[in-house]
Design a protein around this nucleic acid. Sequence first.
DNA 1: CTACAATATATGAATATTCATATCCATGTC
DNA 2: GACATGGATATGAATATTCATATATTGTAG
Lengths: 116, 116
Amino acid sequence: MARSDDDGRLQAFKAEFFKALAHPLRIRILELLVVDDRSVLEIQRALGAEQPIVSQQLAVLRAKHIVRATKEGTTVRYAVADPEIRALLSAARRIFNNQLVGTRSMLRELARERRR
Amino acid sequence: MARSDDDGRLQAFKAEFFKALAHPLRIRILELLVVDDRSVLEIQRALGAEQPIVSQQLAVLRAKHIVRATKEGTTVRYAVADPEIRALLSAARRIFNNQLVGTRSMLRELARERRR
DNA sequence: CTACAATATATGAATATTCATATCCATGTC
DNA sequence: GACATGGATATGAATATTCATATATTGTAG
């Protein structure tokens, strides 16, 4: 059974979406925003990250419509664009929990792996 | 409130997980495997992709414990490692569904996919 | 208008991913 | 053994991401 062109484009689109989540800082930002709206400055401070870095990563999330920004005077507040994001992150959390059960060594191994 | 080191490592771990999903071919493979186990050859044929490419991308999914492989004689069968993967992919599908309002070909494809 | 504060974007070097080609490994068959 | 089949891995060129630095933009205060 032949696959249509549209199918290919859809999977590419989904991949783009997951790619937007595939970054430690962006995950941390999202886990903040899932709890509540925040300004860029608040995010910066919560994460201890530099301003341009935070703005850059927010731009990535914005580009994929995962968060939305609203200007309030001189500051900009960010919020998750779709409540389903919460469902997705908690499905992810459940997977991590299953995977990490009993395996302390896994985190250690990951850390070691990244060091190279 | 200070963030613990483990927290940072956990977010990195989650990012690694999403990174594994962030590829069109890997998404397509997963959507096959969510339905049923398959051998490498079956995946190759279903996707019309070359053998080394499929093996390479399967290796990525294996490395992140998203799929598991079992040898059966001369062939290897792959399956999703955790049933929660299904939940995650459908949360993702719901998000795409919300987002894609207005882009026509993708909506058509989503509808077709949901019917299965 | 000047100056400052909050945020965004441009640039580019360092780094990581992707995918094609070639090669290897394991198992089964003759 | 020789050979075929199903899979995995090594290599490297092309491409994409990341993050720091520098520079813009926009809104507000004085």
